[in-house]
Design a protein around this nucleic acid. Structure first.
Lengths: 228, 228
DNA sequence: ATATTATGATAGTATTACTATTATTTTTAT
DNA sequence: ATAAAAATAATAGTAATACTATCATAATAT
């Protein structure tokens, strides 16, 4: 990623925050440091009090940006999916062949984030780890339906839909484009997690990325003739 | 499921509990009522104090069975996976043809639990809902590696391995049997969740079970010639 | 120079997630 | 049948969490 990205901002649903963290220095420190802290200690041990101390500020000041840490997690993960969506669109835009396009798309959404684009104060490598470890917690709640209606998951949903469209462009007769798209996105996070913690449950490892597995899986499904 | 099951017990790692809940009436009420309560109010709102009140007992008594609610969740989910494993083995045991066997296996692990087997005080329908909504939380923690070493996830791991073996029996050249097995198990929970809360992200719905989707997906992957 | 807004400091509350102690009831062993 | 042991219940207490509320101070905008 390069210069271009420096002028791009990821637009997050305004209901997720009280005050836009991008609008001030303190806000940016909140985002920056919360990524470090959640990455280091995990979401459950992370608190606004600890964050306040860490950024040389105050618990009460953090509360002026986010209602609670759940909303902050929604903010961080939305940002991540927005960033991925941007890459997906940018790098597949010029590809005419649907197969090549889909292949590129799968590569983008399943790869390990290995470089920090430096286009913001956000550490994408760490954020990728956070998404792997914590994303499910943002929607596996009793409030999902309300929060979904409020539009807290729009970016992720848009991403799944973009993948689904690319799948359909390869084979419009395929019956499960949405399920396949959501399986690739969610499954990729899961395979990355297994690679790090349950090596006996995955074939992915150092140098065998989930990318290859999912690419083969998707193209098999789309070019299969088992239902003929 | 029938009579036979009444004599089967699912063996849970003894480190997960302090006192075996199967060993007393109070223990069984703890399990039974915790399933109702977690199902109703979600894992985060559930507390041992509320559980104590509900079963006409005491917070401190619950603590004599489980160290904390995380361990209780591990117990419940282990039980569920053990129960699924039992069905998997039981109903595939007599099938000689590897394809038919795998097909049956996929059906068992991806179907919606629709009947309470009555072979225990455990409500399997509700427990299935709990697994869909809460299972990820049991391993997406900072303590996974330690708890994995303690053997808290053995049953689940055994289940993935059984699925993986069945996959290999259909196509021993297939490169990702473990990833495919873990994708089916985890992905099935995810598709069920989407069906209930994010209908725009899945093709599964009333009468279109994840079963069909995953069956097609797995057999496409195994009979694919895209790498030839 | 003053009003406005942002931030910081402090205090307070209800709830959670426990631990510890003691009392009471139930079970079991003799 | 009785004593000892084990299980359960009741009560109290603690540190931490997840906030809310209030007031003071600093930065900025007009």
């Amino acid at each position: 990623m390069d210069q271009l990205l420096q002028s791009v901002t990821i637009r997050i649903n305004e209901k997720i925050f009280i005050k836009d963290p991008e609008s001030s220095d303190l806000g940016k420190r909140i985002i920056e440091e919360s990524i470090n802290m959640i990455g280091r200690m995990g979401f459950e041990s992370f608190t606004f009090k600890k964050l306040g101390t860490q950024i040389g500020s105050n618990e009460s000041s953090v509360y002026r940006y986010f209602e609670n840490k759940h909303k902050l997690l929604l903010y961080l993960t939305s940002w991540y999916w927005g960033w991925l969506e941007y890459q997906l669109v940018f790098f597949t835009n010029n590809i005419a062949d649907p197969k090549q396009k889909l292949e590129k798309a799968i590569r983008i959404v399943t790869k390990t984030t290995e470089e920090d684009s430096e286009f913001s104060h956000i550490n994408e490598i760490l954020l990728n780890k956070i998404v792997i470890n914590e994303y499910s917690k943002s929607y596996l709640t009793k409030e999902v339906d309300t929060e979904n209606k409020e539009g807290y998951f729009v970016i992720y949903k848009r991403l799944v839909n973009r993948m689904s469209s690319m799948i359909k462009e390869v084979n419009e007769a395929y019956e499960y484009p949405l399920s396949l798209a959501s399986t690739v996105l969610e499954g990729s996070l899961h395979q990355h997690f297994l690679k790090d913690h349950f090596t006996s449950l995955t074939d992915c490892r150092e140098n065998v990325d989930p990318t290859e597995y999912f690419t083969q899986l998707v193209f098999s499904a789309l070019t299969s003739n088992i239902n003929d």
